[in-house]
Simulated assay, not measured.
Amino acid sequence: MEPAIALNISICAALVGITGYAIYTAFGPPSRELDDPFEDHED
């Protein structure tokens, strides 16, 4: 396998992993610990 193809695959895998982790953090079980700052300061 050429180095350029291996680099592209690894960059794509890292991007998919980071995106998956962000979605899991935003909508999965850890999201219960997140606070909405706009709901904390109602006018």
Rank of each mutant, 00 (worst) to 15 (best):
F27T: 09
T19R: 07
I23C: 00
I9T: 10
L7F: 14
T19N: 02
F27Q: 10
D36S: 09
G28P: 10
A4W: 10
G28C: 15
G28H: 06
D43S: 06
P3F: 13
G17C: 10
V16Q: 07
N8W: 13
D35Q: 04
L7M: 15
C12G: 10
E39A: 14
H41G: 14
L15I: 10
G28Y: 08
D40C: 04
I23D: 01
D35P: 08
V16P: 09
N8G: 05
H41M: 11
E39R: 13
L7H: 06
E42Y: 02
E39D: 11
E2C: 07
I11S: 04
L34D: 02
I23L: 14
A13V: 11
M1F: 01
A6N: 01
A22E: 07
L15Y: 05
S10N: 14
A13F: 13
I9Y: 10
E33R: 05
G20R: 02
A4V: 08
A26Q: 14
A14S: 11
E2S: 12
A22F: 14
I5Q: 14
E39G: 12
I9S: 03
P37Y: 12
G28D: 14
N8K: 00
P30K: 03
L34N: 12
I5F: 04
D40Y: 01
T25S: 01
E42I: 15
I5T: 15
R32M: 00
D43K: 11
F38A: 11
P3H: 06
R32K: 07
A6Q: 05
A22I: 08
E39V: 10
G17T: 11
G17L: 04
F27A: 11
F27P: 07
D35A: 05
D40K: 15
A4G: 07
C12L: 13
L7T: 08
L7G: 03
I9G: 02
T19C: 08
I5L: 13
A26P: 11
F38W: 07
A6V: 12
Y21C: 12
P30F: 11
D36Q: 13
D40E: 10
D35N: 09
A26G: 06
L15K: 06
D40M: 10
P30I: 04
S31Q: 10
Y21S: 00
P37N: 05
L34E: 04
L7I: 02
E2Q: 08
L34C: 11
F38Y: 03
A14D: 01
S10A: 15
C12S: 08
F27W: 02
M1N: 14
E33H: 08
Y24I: 11
L15E: 06
T19G: 05
R32Q: 13
